[in-house]
Design a protein around this nucleic acid. Structure first.
Lengths: 223, 223
DNA sequence: ACCTGAACACCGTTCAAGT
DNA sequence: ACCTGAACACCGTTCAAGT
């Protein structure tokens, strides 16, 4: 007589899945940030022993890759059907909003390219728009790169929560500089503090970049 | 009879200075990277007890701020005397090369603006060039922001050492995608892998940004 | 195959004590 | 004021053992 199996899928004895672990990890990341996420914390939050997590993910890096991949699934799902500049603008804003919502992604991406299919959907969409705009298959990746970098940088290098305290700190630092050595900073102190955050600032740089890509396209068509 | 003082400056009993500590920290950072730098490691390398470092820096953050400030001293020391686009290009490349040499700076700057006088020298130089170009005191910081962000992003989000292995990984990921769903990535696979690193890639995005700023300037002059 | 606690080799920093 | 070792509260991961 065969050994009785109490569950249809006998493997996991805790009823855990990779998805459940990823979802708890995402919660911790969104709530308390990247530095608060530890394997011990995830396990505790799930009510299992620390090492149980290692049955589902080889190490912390693999788990973090999983979180990013899950978050990137929706990005670039549909290629906008608009003039190319507007379409690129929409795709950049889509990425921008995702990163603003899960700011740990920008910290995580550092020097560790994510090449999973989910993460490449956005890349495919941007390349498609660039192709329609008239960029060659060779040049399109070069045109994509600054859009990607600028959008990631905006989240990674802008002060996050307590925006106002960052603005005040910038203003205080600017006005305390010797005006003879730093005349332009002193003169632009307020505008400089304001330029650190906000949708308007993001849009300003993005639009300059798109104008620059347009100029490049026109230059080529004149030849 | 007064107590004999064996050194002119009796305060430090180990002969340590902040500068010495910063220099050891910089060595470790350049050699082994940000994650290898610990207070314990610095102390050991200096031949003192771990807690001795805390007599010179309040905590690790203050020490790291010190390293960045020291590295930024030379940046923007002279404002280039050339047409404004060339000058901005030179300043961006100056920052780019500094970051390439000390890539930990880009990791460190994350969400923690550095507002020391040394770190603001480059900002002052860029604002001065933007002023000469014709940007208003209000708009110049907005124009500066993408130059700063793009240059930082380039170091922060590009694979560093073992460039070739990153190129191969990208290529492998691209060609293994289903071509029906990812036609543009598959088509541009080689160019995409090449676009991740290299001076040419950095220059391409920078030049588009500068073209975009020029277009903005012309637009305003037409009004 | 999945789960576990103990152990190892690390962290930054507080504390109390030494000069 | 400067220097220190011990201790505290953490890490990620290996190991050996359990089911």
């Amino acid at each position: 007589m065969p050994r009785k199996r109490s569950t249809p899928n006998p493997r996991p004895r805790t009823g855990l899945t990779r998805e459940q672990i990823l979802s708890v990890a995402l919660e911790v990341l969104d709530r308390d940030g990247l530095e608060a996420l530890s394997m011990r914390r995830i396990a505790t939050e799930l009510g299992v022993g620390t090492m149980t997590v290692y049955s589902y993910f080889r190490d912390k890096d693999e788990l973090l890759d999983g979180v990013i991949d899950a978050g990137a699934q929706q990005l670039g799902a549909t290629v906008p059907d608009a003039p190319w500049k507007e379409s690129l603008r929409a795709l950049a804003f889509e990425l921008h909003h995702e990163l603003a919502q899960h700011s740990f992604i920008a910290q995580l991406r550092q020097r560790r390219p994510i090449l999973s299919p989910g993460a490449l959907r956005w890349t495919e969409a941007v390349l498609e728009v660039l192709h329609r705009a008239g960029f060659s298959a060779d040049e399109a990746p070069q045109a994509l790169r600054p859009l990607f970098l600028y959008t990631f940088a905006y989240t990674a290098f802008s002060p996050d929560e307590a925006t106002d305290s960052a603005r005040r700190a910038s203003l205080a630092a600017s006005v305390s500089l010797p005006p003879e050595q730093y005349p332009r900073i002193v003169q632009s102190a307020h505008a400089l503090a304001d330029s650190m955050t906000g949708e308007t600032t993001f849009a300003y740089g993005l639009d300059r970049l798109l104008d620059g890509l347009e100029a490049q396209l026109k230059r080529q068509q004149e030849d």
